[in-house]
Every structure is written in C-alpha cells, then in structure tokens.
Amino acid sequence: MIQFALLVAVIGWLVSLSTSTLGYNWQWYRIPRYLFRVQGGRLVAGKLIEGLLFTFRIAGVSLLLALSIGLGTALLRLSDSFMGRLLTRLYLEVIRNTPLVVQIYLIYFVIGPILGLGRFGSAVMALSLFEGSYMSEIFRAGIVSLHRGQWEAAHSLGLSTVDTYRDVILPQAIRRILPPLTGELISLIKNTSLVSLVSLNDLALQARVIAADTFMTFEVWFATALIYLAITAPLSVAVYALEKRLRVLT
C-alpha cells in the first residue's frame, strides 16, 4: 500500500514536472461535461460515455463471435478431418502473423464491401477473427491439458464425441482456461480502440475528437485511460473470484 502510494506520488511528480516545463494549463473542470451532462433536468451521457457504450457494444458482439470462432477452430484443429485441420491452421497463421490494424483496413475496404458488411460489421469481423485466433489456442491448450483417461472413461461408457466434449471435456477445460481467456477479453476491449481508425464512434475516437477540439490533450487522454482501466480492472477481479469458486479438486 505504501509502495503504491509512493509510486503514484512519483508519477504525479513526473507529470507535473513535464507539464510545468511545457507551461501546460490544466483544465480538469472541463472534463465532467464529456462524461455526463444535465439536459432538461435529466442526466444524459456525455461524449466519452457515449463512446464507452459503443465500445461495450462492439466488444460484446465481438466477444461472442470470437468465443464461437475460437472454440470452433480449436475443435476443428483437434478433429480427424484433414481439411478442417488445414483450413484452421491457415486461418491461424494468417491472422496471427499480420497486424490487427492491417486486418481492420483490409476487411473494411476489401472484404466488407464484398460481403455487404457495413462499418460496424467489418469492425466486428476483424476483431472477432483476430481475437478468435488467440482464443482458439487457449481453448486447444485447455482441452489437450486434460488427462487422456477422461476421454477414455467417457468413450468406454459409450458417450459420443459431442457428448464427451459437452459433459466431460469442456466443463473441465473452461475452468482451466478462464484466466487466459479473461486476458483475451481485456485485450479485446483494448483493441476496440483500433476501430476508431475506420471512423467508428468508440471511446478512443471520441477522445481524439474532444482532444482536438479543446486542446485538453492531457486531461482527455488521462480520463480515457482511467475509463478503460475502470472497465478492465474489475473484470480481472471478477474472473479471479469466479475462478476460485469454480475450482475443481483433482
């Protein structure tokens, strides 16, 4: 706790040092209006919160898709199908060896129009394909980490492959992969900031616009960082609690 306070103090001191040499004029009082405004006696979301809500929407849809893609890819890679293994391997290599920014642009400008995807659709597709590739490796690791005896016991009881996955393998694998999977969820939320590149009004784009409009570069970006942190940090804590609750003795 003392160390943390000390750290904050040091960072604060460095920031004030750099801003004082720049002669920066702090205007924190102008930030709240971008969070919430009172309009007609009611509290409405400001630009930053609007952006955050949009970030939630795009992260939520992408998360569901990425989980499905990740699980599907992992199962195909572990299947007996040669084509399945080849295609998933190809997908993983292409996605993981190119930058997300390039993928977003490619999908937005080239693939999106072909498939008739709009701005939002393209961004979701890019994010979920990207995160799905990482999640598939996590799923695969979780599945192969289970003892072979689990498969054998299930098979010896006459359970089909589908039943074995559903009732025996996945429930155990998911408990094991919750921590790395959360890491991916957090990185997904952070990566949504890249969709501002195709002019989607997410938190990052709103921040950029406000900073450009008001010249409050420091305040806006600090506030934005804090908002991202306020979302991702509790997530880490929540999953840690979940992980403890679901722990299975073996």
Binding site: G149, A153, A154, H155, S156, L157
Partner: peptide, 15 residues
C-alpha cells in the same frame, strides 16, 4: 462400448 464396461487403473472419474 455400450455393451462393454471398463474400469481403469487410475479410476478416471469425472472430477
């Protein structure tokens, strides 16, 4: 497999 039951050295219960 539905007609043949098997018991393993390491039990292999579903934990």
């Amino acid at each position: 497999r539905q007609e043949v039951g098997m018991v393993f050295q390491s039990f292999n219960l579903f934990p």
